[in-house]
C-alpha cells in the first residue's frame, strides 16, 4: 500500500515540476499547488497509514492514527492556501495593470 501512495506522491511531484517549468503565471500557480499537495502527503504518510483509526478519543478502540502529522499537514494546507490566494491577487493585479 505504501508503494502506491509513494507512486502517487511521485506523480504529483512530477506533474508539479513539469507545470512549474512551463512558464506562464498560471502554470506556476498550478505547479506550486501540485507540489504542496505532494509535500503534504509526504508529511501525512510519515505518520503511518491506518484506516478506520481516527484520532478521536471517545470511539477509541485499538491503535489510533498519529494525530501529529495530521495537525502539521492541516497547518501546511492552510498556510499554502493563504499564499496561493495571495498569488491570485498578484495575478489579478498584474492583469489589471497590463496595458
Amino acid at each position: 500500500m505504501e508503494l502506491i501512495i509513494a507512486i502517487a506522491i511521485g506523480a504529483l511531484t512530477a506533474a508539479g515540476i513539469y507545470r512549474l517549468l512551463a512558464g506562464s503565471r498560471l502554470d506556476l500557480l498550478a505547479g506550486i499547488l501540485l507540489l504542496s499537495q505532494a509535500a503534504n502527503l509526504i508529511v501525512f504518510a510519515s505518520g503511518g497509514l491506518l484506516h478506520g483509526a481516527a484520532p478521536l478519543l471517545h470511539d477509541a478502540t485499538g491503535p489510533l492514527a498519529d494525530p501529529l502529522p495530521q495537525a502539521l499537514v492541516l497547518t501546511a494546507i492552510v498556510i499554502g492556501f493563504g499564499i496561493l490566494a495571495f498569488l491570485l491577487i498578484l495575478l489579478q493585479r498584474d492583469s489589471d495593470n497590463r496595458p
Binding site: 501512495i5 506523480a11 511531484t13 515540476i17 517549468l21 504518510a45
Partner: peptide, 12 residues
C-alpha cells in the same frame, strides 16, 4: 520532472 518524481517516490 519525471526523475524528480522518481526520486521523491524512492524517498518516501
Amino acid at each position: 520532472a519525471l526523475s524528480a518524481g522518481a526520486v521523491v517516490t524512492m524517498l518516501v
